[in-house]
C-alpha cells in the first residue's frame, strides 16, 4: 500500500521516515589531529586528583587515527570511535565541521556526543542553498554576550521565531567525557504546536547543510603555566557521534526519498507534484496552484481539462478565483480545430460533429461554406449552417432557393425569377 493514498485511493498527506540524515555521510572538518602525528593527553579526575594519560594521534595509523568518518559511523557505545581535532585550537581560532545532507531536510534536532569536555563556546549553522549562505541555528557559550553578542536565553516571540538563541546550558566542562549537546529546532518556538500552518517554522527547520563551529575550549586554566605544552596537549575537541535527526523535505507529497539517475537524493513525488522537494506541480497539472499537503488536505495537483486536445496548459489566478477556487487551468494550443479554455468548442470555420464526443479527434468538421453563395466562412457551431446571401439556400449555401435563379453577379448570385 502507498502511504500517500488511502485504502480508497484518495490522496492523503505522507511524509518520509524520520532518520539520522548524518549517518554514514562525509563530514568536512577543518583541523583533524594526526597529520603529522602528535601527542595528546586525556585528563581523568578521581575526586580532587587529576591524572593525565598521553597517547599519539597518527592519521597514518588506523589504530591511532581519529578521522572525520568517526563522527557519523555506527555509534557503538561499547567501542566508541571518536573524531578528534588538533590540540589547543583556542579562540579566536576555531574548528569547523560541515555536513552536506544532499537535499533539503526538515531538521528536528542536531546532537553531538563528546569524547572530550564539551566546548566552552560553539555555534550551529544551517544552509538552505547547499552551502552558498549560512544562517545561525543555535549558540552555546558561558559568555553569550561576549562570544556571540547575544543575550543568554533570549525570549522567542511570534515576531522572531527564526531567531537563533544563545544559551549557557550544556556548557559545563563536566563531564570530562561523554557529554551531550542536543539542539531541538522547534524547542521554545511559539508556533511549534501548529507547525503545519506555520510557513515561518517550516522554513526555519529546513536545511541542506549543517555547520558546527567549535569556538572556545574549556581549560583548567593551566595552559599558560609551567609545562604548558603538556597542558595544551590535553585540550582538543573530540566527538563520537554527530546526528542530524529529521525528515527528507517533500512537503507532504512523498513517503520516501530515493537517488535519481545523477545520484542526487530526491523525493519520490506523488499527488501529481514534481521537483526535488515535490514543491511544484508536474506538467499539465496546473488546474490549481501548488500547495503543501496538510493533515486535513492532501492538496494534490490537478490535471487541466482539455478534452484530449492539448498537451500543455497554464494556471490563471483570476479564473481560479472566479471559479470559487475550483479550477484555473487554461489549455494552450488546442488541436483538432478546437478552441476555448478547455478546447471544448470548435474554432471559427468549424462546427461540431454531434455524432462524436467532444474529446474525439474529429469532433470538429470544417464548415465548407460556398465561396459565393455564403455571406461568410463561419457556420453555426452545432448545425453547420452557413450564413447564406439573399435567395440562396442549403447548409453550405450552394444553391438558389425556390423562386430564384442563378445570376452572373457574385454579389447577388440568386435573383428572383420574373
Amino acid at each position: 500500500p502507498d502511504p500517500c493514498y488511502d485504502e480508497n485511493g484518495n490522496p492523503r498527506r505522507c511524509i518520509p521516515d524520520f532518520v539520522n540524515s548524518a549517518f554514514g555521510k562525509d563530514v568536512r572538518v577543518s583541523r583533524t589531529c594526526g597529520s603529522p602525528a602528535a601527542r595528546y593527553c586525556v585528563v581523568t579526575e578521581k575526586g580532587e586528583e587529576r591524572t593525565r594519560d598521553c597517547h599519539s594521534c597518527d592519521a597514518g595509523d588506523p589504530k591511532k587515527s581519529h578521522p572525520p568518518a568517526y563522527l557519523t559511523d555506527l555509534n557503538n557505545p561499547h567501542n566508541l570511535t571518536c573524531w578528534q581535532s588538533e590540540n589547543y585550537v583556542q579562540a579566536p581560532q576555531n574548528v569547523t565541521l560541515t555536513l552536506s545532507l544532499g537535499k533539503k531536510f526538515e531538521v528536528t534536532y542536531v546532537s553531538l556526543q563528546f569524547c572530550s569536555p564539551r566546548p566552552e563556546s560553539m555555534a550551529i549553522y544551517k544552509s538552505m542553498d547547499y552551502g552558498k549562505s549560512w544562517v545561525p541555528f543555535q549558540f552555546y557559550s558561558t559568555q553569550c554576550k561576549k562570544m556571540y553578542n547575544r543575550q543568554n536565553k533570549a525570549a522567542i516571540t511570534k515576531q522572531n521565531e527564526q531567531e537563533a538563541i544563545c544559551t549557557d546550558s550544556h556548557t559545563d566542562m563536566h563531564p570530562l567525557t561523554g557529554g551531550l549537546i542536543a539542539f531541538s529546532t522547534l524547542d521554545g518556538r511559539p508556533s511549534a504546536h501548529d507547525f503545519d500552518n506555520s510557513p515561518v517554522l517550516q522554513d526555519w527547520v529546513t536545511a541542506t547543510d549543517i555547520k558546527v563551529i567549535f569556538s572556545r575550549l574549556h581549560t583548567f586554566g593551566d595552559e599558560n603555566e609551567d609545562d604548558s605544552e603538556l597542558a595544551r596537549d590535553s585540550y582538543f575537541y573530540a566527538v563520537s557521534d554527530l546526528q542530524v535527526g529529521g525528515r527528507c523535505k517533500c512537503n507532504g507529497h512523498a513517503s520516501k526519498c530515493v537517488k535519481d539517475r545523477e545520484g542526487n537524493l530526491v523525493c519520490e513525488c506523488k499527488h501529481n507534484t514534481a521537483g526535488p522537494e515535490c514543491d511544484r506541480c508536474k506538467p499539465f497539472h496546473y488546474d490549481r496552484p501548488w500547495q503543501r499537503a496538510t493533515a486535513r488536505e492532501a492538496n494534490e495537483c490537478v490535471a487541466c481539462h482539455c478534452n484530449l486536445h492539448a498537451r500543455r496548459c497554464r494556471f490563471n489566478m483570476e479564473l481560479y478565483k472566479l471559479s470559487g477556487r475550483k479550477s484555473g487551468g487554461v489549455c494552450m494550443n488546442c488541436r483538432h480545430n478546437t478552441a476555448g479554455r478547455h478546447c471544448h468548442y470548435c474554432k471559427e470555420g468549424f462546427y461540431r460533429d454531434m455524432a462524436r464526443p467532444i474529446s474525439h479527434r474529429r469532433a470538429c468538421k470544417a464548415c465548407d461554406c460556398h465561396p459565393v453563395g455564403a455571406a461568410g466562412k463561419t457556420c453555426n457551431q452545432t448545425t453547420g449552417q452557413c450564413p447564406c446571401k439573399d435567395g440562396v439556400t442549403g447548409i453550405t449555401c450552394n444553391r438558389c432557393a425556390k423562386g430564384y435563379q442563378q445570376s452572373r453577379s457574385p454579389v447577388a448570385p440568386c435573383i428572383k425569377i420574373p
Binding site: 465561396p371 459565393v372 440562396v392 450552394n398 444553391r399 442563378q406 452572373r408 453577379s409 457574385p410
Partner: peptide, 24 residues
Amino acid sequence: EVMPTLDMALFDWTDYEDMKPVDT
C-alpha cells in the same frame, strides 16, 4: 425536385477580381 447548385463558371468576375476564389 433537386435544386441545381450554383455554377461557378457562370459568374462574371469583371470588376470583382478581388472576390474571385483562388481555385476558380
